[in-house]
Design a protein around this nucleic acid. Structure first.
Length: 280
DNA sequence: AGTATCCTGGAA
DNA sequence: TTCCAGGATACT
């Protein structure tokens, strides 16, 4: 599921392939995903691509931006004459456009940007660049790992909440970018039970968890993200972090630290993976 | 703090 | 055929 490492991988790809391209036309096949006037982005040239937590912003030269959230199953795939011959994931993407393609950005020089989304949870919004920060999702976003999430702030968030630590660190308003996969793995790394009320964590545990969050997300980016679900990069290729998770998706596996078995439980309605022997 | 909602492909 | 997946929001 796209979290910070997946969305950052996409951002880098978009930055690399999109900057300099002009948007020539927009084809909207599923209107509910698209907000704002598509005409406002036509003739706009891509200046840069930003990421805030799990959200993306494509800034154009004409004062408008595309704010995008791919939620669980969104894909942004770039194709041009050069990349056309590089195969996209047959399983996750198929032939473009597919029946899951809901928006197509026609770019200059014969290039295209496809937005696919199996579950149609994602959104694309046209907004003035200087109003991006007013969108509720961006406005309420907390500080994020690798950026402005300091250990001091992290400590403060955890110490002041009775919430179970896992749903707490996944709250985008408090901390941006952490989702289910990396929350599970970071907690496993730090040997902390995801159900622990956050304020019961000791300083040393908070520090270890902070370290774990960064560690597992770094691994995520190293492996090009997790393609457990529909995630692919802008070339339509899968990542492989799903083969390197510490705890996520590993129910029944033996914990290599102590030989315990990783259990799947539900916490806050979400699949949660925990070795009860070493995660206390 | 837990639960329903959106939505649908794919697994069971 | 039913159920599950979960990011974010909106309820209760």
């Amino acid at each position: 599921m796209p979290e910070l490492p997946e969305v950052e991988t996409i951002r880098r790809g978009l930055e690399h392939y999109l900057v300099g391209h002009k948007i020539v036309d927009v084809e909207i096949r599923v209107p509910k995903l698209f907000e704002g006037n598509p005409k406002d982005v036509i003739d706009g040239k891509v200046k840069k691509v930003r990421r805030f937590g799990k959200g993306l912003v494509i800034d154009l030269s004409n004062g408008y931006s595309l704010a995008i959230h791919i939620k669980l199953t969104g894909q942004l795939i770039y194709r041009d004459k050069k990349t056309e011959d590089e195969p996209v994931s047959k399983e996750k993407v198929g032939t473009l456009p597919s029946k899951l393609t809901h928006v197509i950005f026609e770019l200059d020089k014969g290039a295209r940007l496809y937005y696919n989304d199996a579950r149609r949870f994602g959104w694309i919004k046209v907004v003035k660049t200087d109003e991006v920060g007013n969108l509720p999702f961006f406005k309420s976003m907390g500080p994020e790992p690798f950026k402005d999430l300091t250990l001091e702030y992290f400590k403060k968030v955890l110490m002041n909440s009775n919430l179970a630590v896992k749903p707490l660190i996944m709250d985008q308003k408090r901390i941006g970018g952490i989702g289910n996969i990396y929350a599970n793995d970071a907690l496993y790394y730090a040997k902390i039970d995801p159900r622990r009320p956050a304020k019961t964590l000791k300083d040393s545990e908070i520090k270890k968890l902070y370290e774990g969050v960064h560690k597992v997300m770094e691994e995520g980016m190293k492996y090009g993200g997790s393609s457990e679900l529909n995630y692919v990069n802008v070339l339509g290729q899968e990542g492989s972090y799903q083969d390197h998770t510490l705890a996520y998706g590993r129910q029944g596996d033996i914990c290599e630290r102590d030989g315990g078995r990783i259990q799947k439980i539900y916490l806050g309605g979400r699949g949660t993976y925990v070795c009860e022997k070493c995660q206390k």
